[in-house]
Simulated scan of single mutants.
Amino acid sequence: MTHEDHHTRVLDFPGATALKDAGLAEPPDPAVLATARSLVRRAIAADTDADVAATATTTTVVVRRFGRRRLLACAAAVAAVAAGAAVLPVVGIGGEPADSASAAELFNTMADRAASGSDRNAPYWKTTVKTWVEGEKAHTDDNFLSRDKLVIKTQNGRTVTKNAPSGGTSWSVGNRQVSWDNLDKLPTRPDALRRVLSAGAEGPAAAEQTVRQSGELLTGSPASPQLRAALFRVLAGTPGAEVTEGVKDGAGRIGTEISWKWSKELLHSPHSPNWIVRPSDGRLLERNHAQEGDADHITQRDTYLYAGPADRIR
């Protein structure tokens, strides 16, 4: 996705893309319009009935709320077709964005994929990263991170070695640094891991810190499959994410974009962060930044062509 590629966020239900592509429809047949109105009325009635049943059992309400959101979305979609509209904004019950539910579902799916991965100890964590910054040429480097140093093999053939600070290689986790060997000591229960990641911050700032540090651990650390799964489950419960399917990364791979929306006061730069992920295997393909106020204007990309353990530098 670049500033020249424009996306249209559509409804979160099967067939939404086809609805968008269909464009404007001809004036509806009266019978079709009547059917659409009937579906909307039935959705509203089902919503009312579910609220009445709330006093009977909490479990029933939780299960139904997902179904109600989908039912209302589908009813609205039929109404949109009948009225000749291509795209409608969808909001869940009580004003909850439908995209939030999609983001949670996506992250939980990725957690399941990550949990099934193999856990192989190796002396290096290798990332092959294609980096592009607006106004500059893209370059691809191999990074070999170990407990005490970072070795970078650049695209132009140079080898750069950076020694880790005293105490060895570490990552920011909450308000402290966690070393390579102590990553396995982080909690893998999502609620406990969230408390650790958000330590030292409050409110929306805690969500921003949790997301940023989770991304760094998922791409740049030898986190175990169990920890990776827990990180994705933490993200599933973190607000502020919007999902767009069918987005290309800097290498031309198709993935699902996750856009994080925070206030300007929370951003570390005047750019909004985006991730592109591949749900089929739980892989984070890219982290990029868009110009604040212009989601289609990408200013920087870090595209991960490889991220995994390595036995040696080569």
Rank of each mutant, 00 (worst) to 15 (best):
M1Y: 02
M1I: 10
H3A: 12
D5C: 09
H7T: 09
T8P: 04
R9P: 06
L11R: 07
L11M: 13
D12F: 04
A16L: 05
A18M: 10
D21T: 10
A22M: 08
A22W: 03
L24C: 08
P28M: 02
D29T: 09
P30W: 04
T35W: 04
L39Q: 07
R41N: 13
R42A: 14
A43S: 14
T48P: 02
V52N: 07
A54I: 09
A56S: 12
T58L: 12
T58R: 15
T60E: 13
T60G: 15
V61P: 01
F66R: 13
L71G: 00
L72C: 08
C74S: 11
V78H: 02
A83N: 10
G84Y: 02
A85N: 13
A86T: 14
L88F: 05
G92L: 03
G92T: 08
G95N: 09
E96S: 09
P97S: 04
A98D: 12
D99N: 12
A104F: 04
A104I: 07
T109L: 11
M110G: 03
M110Q: 00
G117V: 05
S118M: 11
D119W: 06
D119C: 07
D119I: 09
P123H: 01
T127C: 05
K130Q: 12
K130G: 04
W132Q: 08
W132E: 05
V133D: 08
K137W: 07
L145P: 00
L145V: 09
S146L: 04
S146H: 02
K149I: 06
K149H: 14
K153I: 07
T154M: 05
N156T: 14
N156R: 14
R158C: 06
R158A: 15
T161G: 05
K162H: 12
N163G: 09
P165F: 02
S166A: 15
Q177W: 07
W180N: 00
D181H: 12
D181L: 10
L183N: 03
K185P: 08
L186A: 03
L186F: 01
R189F: 04
P190I: 04
R195H: 06
L197G: 00
G200Q: 09
P204C: 06
G215V: 12
E216I: 13
E216C: 10
L218N: 01
G220M: 06
S221E: 00
P222G: 02
P225R: 01
Q226L: 11
L231T: 00
R233A: 01
V234Y: 01
L235T: 01
L235H: 01
L235K: 02
L235M: 14
T238A: 05
T244G: 05
T244Q: 09
G250M: 01
G252P: 03
I254N: 10
W262N: 10
S263D: 15
K264H: 13
K264W: 11
K264M: 10
E265T: 13
E265D: 13
H271G: 10
N274E: 09
R278M: 05
D281I: 08
R283K: 14
L285R: 00
R287Q: 14
R287V: 11
A295N: 06
A295Q: 03
D296K: 12
D296Y: 11
A307R: 03
D311K: 15
D311R: 15
I313H: 01
R314F: 10
R314M: 07
